[in-house]
Design a protein around this nucleic acid. Structure first.
Lengths: 196, 196
DNA sequence: ACAAAAAACTAATAAGTGTTAGTTTTGCAT
DNA sequence: ATGCAAAACTAACACTTATTAGTTTTTTGT
């Protein structure tokens, strides 16, 4: 049979990961078989093992790639000298951008990390916790310097993260909402609220 | 072997569904086997079939029970004569209450409905869409009567629903946040924002 | 105490799982 | 053209899956 197509650049492994993310997103990790993945790629299942180590390695690659992008971004935001509000805005916008540009991967990282094996699951959760802690620190600082209302900072972080992580079902409303409107109005909503 | 315990009232099927929800939540539907479920119940797998029709029936029961509760609630909220803001607040509080009181079921309905077979999946999605439409109508009415800022109503609905549906990971912070604070501050956040 | 019903059991099935071993084909560099 | 490495193939593995059939045990109602 024909070889796995490698459009433009990127290794075959890259293409496999990409299609895996697509399937893991739409069918879930556990319900996606290597035979299905192979079929999408136009190849027999065992052929995949010329390029990857295992099914779970695919999940690891997806989760850590996404996790590291977010960690990198928050570090850079922490380092700049914007206001707290500005930093929170940048974080919200980054989440939306990531969700739009890397939908499958981000979705999988957010929803399928449960199926990571140790020690990867622990590592991944540590990345998440570290990210959440950064956000918490930011919100607390905002409350301290009076930029932000004195609400419970855990709740604020929870609300923001829930809202941006749940973005996957924006997909269905694509036609109705441009990325700009989504970003702008979500930032307004999560920072300034919606009531007059 | 001993029979399935039926604490207080409720049929054995009820107990099975409850444990299934627990497993489907923590391991996902696809990765939960009937043998595991049976083990949790202290019974052999085939014994389950004296009480239930199939594995997928369990998922159906969970999803539709949750779906119908939400539909019932929003209908009752639509019918009352509160302000739009008050109605939105009630909806947010109801989501939080549901998440806290029926965590496993709500989580499963929110995350595992993909594994429903037809026609159940279509039916379930219709329930969801109907719920979202109700919310959208509410937000639009709020914008019309000037209770709510003129932001994109789709985005507002998306943000609120994402935020409250993502609540599952509040679990980890249980110790830090009481239900009252969670409800109050999340309502404030999603309605009035967090910036001063 | 005894019959009937409920609910457990064991054994088995057919299909599907990730993955390996060994072999053949493909395509590029010389 | 030819040799070599990359990447495909087929066949097979050891398990696991949901579910059924048939049987035995347990509980319930009289």
């Amino acid at each position: 049979m024909a070889k796995i197509l490698t459009p433009k650049k990127g290794s075959r492994k890259e293409v496999i990961i990409e299609k895996a993310a697509m399937l893991f997103k739409s069918k879930s990790y556990a319900a996606t078989s290597m035979r299905e993945l192979a079929e999408v790629l136009g190849v027999e299942a065992p052929s995949l093992y010329n390029h990857i180590g295992s099914k779970s390695e695919l999940l690891q690659d997806i989760c850590f790639r996404v996790g590291n992008k977010f960690i990198g971004q928050i570090k850079s935001i922490e380092a700049n000298d914007d206001t707290i509000t500005g930093k929170l805005e940048a974080i919200i916008r980054f989440h939306i951008q990531m969700m739009i540009e890397n939908f499958n991967e981000v979705y999988v990282a957010n929803h399928e990390w449960k199926h990571l094996h140790e020690p990867y699951m622990t590592d991944f959760l540590n990345i998440r916790r570290s990210y959440e802690k950064s956000l918490l620190t930011l919100v607390i600082a905002g409350i301290d310097n009076n930029e932000i209302r004195p609400i419970n900072p855990y709740v604020a972080v929870l609300t923001i993260l829930s809202a941006v992580r749940g973005l996957e079902f924006w997909q269905r409303n694509k036609k109705n909402i441009s990325q700009k409107v989504l970003e702008d109005d979500m930032v307004i909503h999560l920072l300034k609220g919606i009531v007059n």
